[in-house]
């Protein structure tokens, strides 16, 4: 049981504390609005599409890189799924094929990022910045501009439907979460990503194949992008080359707030998950207070910078303590 209370969990504790504070505050000040089924449901309908995205960014940041092409990958995957479904007359088979094609697209796009980063050793920031343009561009070529609307009902069900009172998308998110947790903590790959992000050379000298790890990491991230793309297009009942552009910042914010260190190596799935929930609560709070989206963007930027400032200052302190 020694992993339960590690020192590095202070971040997880802080996040849980903040969530509890918000929950209590809600209970005190607006119980009749927050603790209603419809509100809880609306919360659950919102966060999975960007939460999944954040897991992709998390893996890349832990590996010592970053992925800012994920929104592009998500839109490209969504557009491809939509094209297939619309082209095949919205049959159930077309939905399955569309989803599979979307996942394959995400994997391929991620592999493309990964190979530029792994084989050519180009900086991840540059590769994924270019990548975002590339994938959005591909999506635009397919759609020729306008959104692809009116997707099959069964497809819309993924992100809009419920079983009883519980949104289907919650199950999807939990499945992804379990998968991500498993991959990051219970597989060789998950550990190797951390080793690579912690010290690239030492990883090589420990027999870890960094090239393979990089490819897998960005492919994993691309897969997350694709899942997010499916959720987004299902949620909006529409696919387009430039949906969800604000999610790039949002996913990085989640990941950094979740305790993933921007220099790589350090970060936990639990932290990121709590961070997703916390940010969704904050978003919901903004909605209650009728705060305009632009204020929110600004606030998210502010939170991101504050978190980084705190991270860096505490880093400095720790360094000073050690020497």
């Amino acid at each position: 049981m020694r992993s339960v209370l590690k020192k590095s969990d202070s971040n997880v504790i802080a996040l849980s504390f903040l969530i509890v504070v918000i929950l209590i505050a809600m209970a005190l000040f607006m119980p009749d609005r927050f603790y209603t089924m419809s509100n809880l449901r609306s919360i659950v309908f919102q966060f999975p599409e960007y939460g999944v995205l954040a897991f992709g960014v998390m893996a890349c940041m832990i590996s010592g890189g970053i992925d800012i092409s994920l929104v592009g990958i998500a839109n490209l995957s969504g557009v491809i799924a939509a094209t297939i479904m619309l082209g095949m007359g919205k049959s159930n088979l077309s939905i399955v094929l569309g989803i599979l094609a979307a996942l394959a697209t995400g994997l391929l796009a991620g592999l493309f990022n990964g190979s530029l980063i792994g084989f050519l050793r180009l900086p991840p920031m540059l590769v994924t910045l270019c990548g975002s343009q590339l994938y959005a561009g591909l999506a635009l070529i397919i759609t020729k501009g306008p959104a692809l609307n009116d997707l099959p009902d069964n497809y819309k069900f993924i992100a809009n439907g419920s079983i009883g009172q519980i949104p289907v998308v919650l199950f999807v998110f939990i499945a992804v979460l379990v998968f991500v947790y498993f991959v990051m903590n219970r597989t060789v790959f998950g550990r190797q990503v951390r080793f690579m992000g912690s010290n690239y050379e030492a990883a090589r000298y420990s027999g870890i194949n960094n090239l393979k790890t990089t490819l897998r990491c960005y492919a994993f991230s691309g897969l997350m992008g694709a899942i997010s793309g499916i959720l987004m297009s299902s949620h909006f009942n529409s696919a387009k080359s430039d949906y969800g552009t604000q999610y790039t910042l949002f996913s990085i914010l989640i990941v950094v707030l979740g305790g993933v260190h921007p220099d790589g190596g350090r970060g936990r799935v639990a932290g990121v998950t709590l961070s997703i929930i916390l940010l969704q609560f904050i978003t919901q709070l903004f909605t209650f207070l009728r705060i305009d989206t632009n204020y929110r963007t600004s606030a998210y930027g502010f939170i991101l910078i504050s978190v980084l400032v705190i991270t860096m200052i505490s880093d400095k302190r720790r360094l000073r303590r050690m020497t």
């Binding site: 080793f195 010290n199 030492a202 000298y205 190596g265 350090r266």
Partner: peptide, 9 residues
């Protein structure tokens, strides 16, 4: 330091 250890781990 650079080839053998993952210092923060």
């Amino acid at each position: 330091l650079t080839q053998g250890l993952f210092l923060e781990r």
